[in-house]
Nucleic acid binder design. Structure first.
Lengths: 348, 348
DNA sequence: ATGAAAGCGCTAACAC
DNA sequence: GTGTTAGCGCTTTCAT
């Protein structure tokens, strides 16, 4: 720490009081006469004194800092969460640091974190976490305040704030069915957070509710990337008869699928309806604009920060798992299926 | 800090040595017999010991943490920088935390930071910083390692890593002139980092080099937002004669301008050529795809981290200001001006 | 090669 | 109201 420039000792000396009195005057709790307080404040200002947070932490104090751990800050959704959380944290008079853990959270990284971060944060929020079960278990045992956002891969004792993927997906697919679609495909994303699985569950539920069979070729595995969506799209569009609608686990894959369709001269939405998830900016830039589903990110971010703050302050936490309904954004990539063109698409 | 679970004291006790020996064994410097070291390591592992970074810092040690301060994490460019820096930091065996200071850095926030961060970071990188002169001066006086990225609003004694805005802008505008354009407009961005001013300087230089006059109505003030670009575009396209090309200080504004043109039925690039800056993802999604300029973000991020690490290790820093050439990405929003349609655009 | 003591800057707990 | 004592977990002396 290279000898902090100005310490409480100097402030106290300048103000002609004891260190403890200076401490009380600065922190605001404990009895200090107005006169003394003013003297101390004046001295502190004159010297340009700044509290050494580390030293305070060493004594068990709060830092008023929230840590947010993400796996992929480049993701638009993650980014939106982080930004909204930063604003909400500020409202709670807290600061917020972001740790971009590229890749999976395993025991190794866990070590580093608990070492490095222990004591630095008052609490931690994991946004769309990709973590091993071991890591999660370690977190569950920890006694420091933690909140998970959009994690539903498995049950946990930690508080979770999440968007409703199942119902959103079911309703979206139901709306396709209502438009006359029967051969509806689904492109999965990575399994990390469990969101893709929930969306798939919603998809299957809607199909089942309508008494429609799900052909095993209609469910493709992607990786949330546009590229993977395009590849999955190629495979789906090569089927005969081909699906008349595709629901992708996120917008990027839906856009990739759209590109695959356009490449083959298949018109969207006339010949192929598409629905994505997340409502990223690109969704309203591509033509046709993408119909999609959207979590209320700002609300969720607020809820997560507030829940964390509550736990930091040892107030009774709210419910253990809070779920927010998603919203469907209908744009131009979905249309009623007029006639069912039973032509066999044989072209490569 | 709520009583750290396992401390060196316990490890030492378990290994049957003194705390100091345990410390030496863990940190690796100082003489410790192999046997003792092994005993200590075993004990540490068994107990799940993790060094308390804070305590170490209190004694003047390094944290191996780099802090990155940004003003707007939502910006695609900022985000790309941060991601690249995180990767580079990891290569240097450092961790990297991000602080998203929404809005301007002034004396108030400066206080908080120097307080909170002092001792926590080994060094700080400011990416596209928006700071008051007072803040910058405080930074210049500080003796902790600091690197600025893409800041050129004014001279500074701090090391700066930046992209070459002037030459990039000049060459881009020169290429428009080579395509026959003469009435070329420029849309400025916010003044924070000074990058817009440099791009404007390049624009004016290219015009002057070609002996072209810059009509004062051709230079519009925007705010880097798509909305502001659209508004500036409306004003520019209402001029008579109207500009045949627009160079915007960033892609978002160029896209806004493109939308303004499309709304008025002005064809891009046939009737209006457009060049942006940054090469954000949207630039290749819009139709026509946007011609733009791009800083080598990954290289710059690496340079910034490496320079910072050098200064942290008290190695002789390299040059005080490093500039990277930008690259022009020619897409479909620019075209040769065939005939100069001198028709008066009178429609509102 | 190992250990003992001192102290980084701050604040809870107790005096006065 | 204010001062004194002690100690957070670690590492830098200095001694052994």
């Amino acid at each position: 720490m290279k000898k902090q420039s100005v310490t409480l000792v100097q402030v106290a000396a300048k103000a002609g009081v004891s260190v403890m009195t200076a401490s009380r005057a600065m922190s605001g709790d404990g009895y200090v006469s107005d006169e003394t307080r003013n003297k101390v404040h004046a001295a502190a200002k004159a010297l340009g004194y700044a509290t050494n947070t580390l030293a305070r932490v060493m004594k068990g104090g709060r830092t008023n800092v929230i840590g947010v751990v993400v796996n992929d800050l480049g993701s638009v959704v993650v980014n939106a969460f982080v930004t909204a959380m930063t604003e909400e944290a500020r409202k709670c008079e807290m600061d917020l640091f972001i740790y971009n853990s590229i890749g999976q959270l395993d025991e190794q990284t866990q070590r580093r974190h608990s070492q490095l971060l222990h004591g630095l944060w008052d609490g931690l929020i994991y946004v769309l976490p990709r973590m091993t079960d071991e890591y999660l278990e370690a977190l569950e045992k920890s006694d420091s305040p933690i909140v998970l956002v959009n994690f539903c891969r498995r049950e946990t004792t930690l508080p979770v704030v999440q968007g409703d993927n199942f119902n959103a997906a079911r309703d979206a697919v139901a709306s396709l069915i209502a438009q006359g679609h029967q051969r509806i495909a689904f492109i999965k994303g990575s399994h990390w957070t469990g969101q893709s699985a929930e969306r798939e569950r919603g998809y299957r539920q809607a199909m089942a509710d309508a008494g429609l069979r799900v052909d095993k070729h209609w469910v493709e595995q992607g990786t949330y990337s546009e590229q993977s969506g395009q590849e999955a799209g190629m495979r789906l569009l090569a089927l005969s008869p081909r699906p008349s609608a595709v629901f992708a686990a996120n917008d990027e894959m839906a856009i990739g699928c759209m590109n695959a369709a356009l490449e083959q001269g298949i018109k969207v939405p006339e010949e192929l309806s598409l629905i994505g998830f997340d409502d990223v900016p690109s969704a309203s830039i591509v033509r046709p604009q993408l119909t999609t589903l959207r979590h209320p990110i700002a609300l969720m971010a607020q809820a997560a920060v507030q829940e964390l703050v509550r736990r930091i302050q040892r107030q009774p936490g709210r419910r253990q798992r809070v779920e927010f309904p998603a919203e469907m954004v209908v744009r131009d990539s979905t249309a009623t299926l007029l006639a069912t063109p039973r032509r066999r698409a044989k072209k490569a």
